[in-house]
Design a protein around this nucleic acid. Sequence first.
DNA 1: AAATAATGAACGATCGTTCGTTCATATCCG
DNA 2: CGGATATGAACGAACGATCGTTCATTATTT
Lengths: 195, 195
Amino acid sequence: MSDTEQPIHPRKLEIVEAAVACFLENGYHQTGVRDIAAKAGVSLGNLYNHFKGKEGVLAFIAQIEGAELAGFIAALSDPADPRAAIEQFIEGYAAYVSLPENALLGVEILTEATRNPAIANVFAENRDRLIDALAHCLEVGARSGAFASFNDTRAVACVFLDALEGHGLRSLSLKNEDHTTSKALKSFLINGLRC
Amino acid sequence: MSDTEQPIHPRKLEIVEAAVACFLENGYHQTGVRDIAAKAGVSLGNLYNHFKGKEGVLAFIAQIEGAELAGFIAALSDPADPRAAIEQFIEGYAAYVSLPENALLGVEILTEATRNPAIANVFAENRDRLIDALAHCLEVGARSGAFASFNDTRAVACVFLDALEGHGLRSLSLKNEDHTTSKALKSFLINGLRC
DNA sequence: AAATAATGAACGATCGTTCGTTCATATCCG
DNA sequence: CGGATATGAACGAACGATCGTTCATTATTT
């Protein structure tokens, strides 16, 4: 669970980086372990010295992706100014999920998770904690009068994440950056919180 | 382009149905043409008498999926009551994209489209027309005073679709139906249109 | 008989994985 | 210090399985 159990072998990181590049370029199921090893400048056999296999590499990536949510969660916990925290979250998370590497890897992991429990477990928990943090922030804001009060703040938090992630996903099919709808999304979400 | 050029060979439909079932169960890249043929009760070679290949089957599915949007587009065009039309669209489209077969096939097609122009073309146009129809409905509603007036109605339409599709996508990772967040999403979107 | 539909063996390519091996470095013993 | 030994990272040939596709052949229908 903790990342600090062992200092990660540099080669392992090189392999993961190469794998991410391959998955982005050709997708998870279209890339072979040979492609990963070749791009990492590593022998085929050596890859298996660092990972349990192709699936092990993806699981490791999922673990990293999940860990990156920790920053957002931390920023939402115990917020001094709930409104500012939410606004910053929306902006930051929208940017995060709109990065092709995050969006593409996200769906790749998600679809794999629907059929692969090992991946699903790594994936699910962190998302749940993100919803919790967001919902908590909404509640704090509601109590302080900054936001409207909702029956089910978790549901509203889900709506936020759905919208943001849906936005990031669609940005995949657009070559140029989608700046105008990104702003529209932000103001629409913020506007939905007013009393 | 038109589906009525030729009456579709019954066998072709059987094959497509089998392919959908396979893609849902195991994903596009994990299912082989042999799996499709076997599930359809058809010989391997005969599949190639009806489709150009595995990719041809997916393209056909994408075409069907696109055609299913026509109903939503029609309902949004020239709306007598924009508010009712939007509400019905939200409800209907949320249900549509929350069906596992639509959500899963959608991402499968989307990810394939990011790397396969042939699929992307089939996929992109209908979505654009859906955005147009939705934006048009929003404008009509704004003029009649039913909705607030937006600078960029297309952007708002994008937000709606992003949120709805993101919702459908996330419903993939939930075993039980997500009724409460579905309602929250609807009311949040509707609420965002008020003057 | 001509045309259409259906078959499945066969092809070359690639898949994920295994495994025996090499080799440079670290540790130990005398 | 110098030689023996242990360690584990790195390698790549090889395996059986499966991939998408082709095509010569057979069956069915008109």
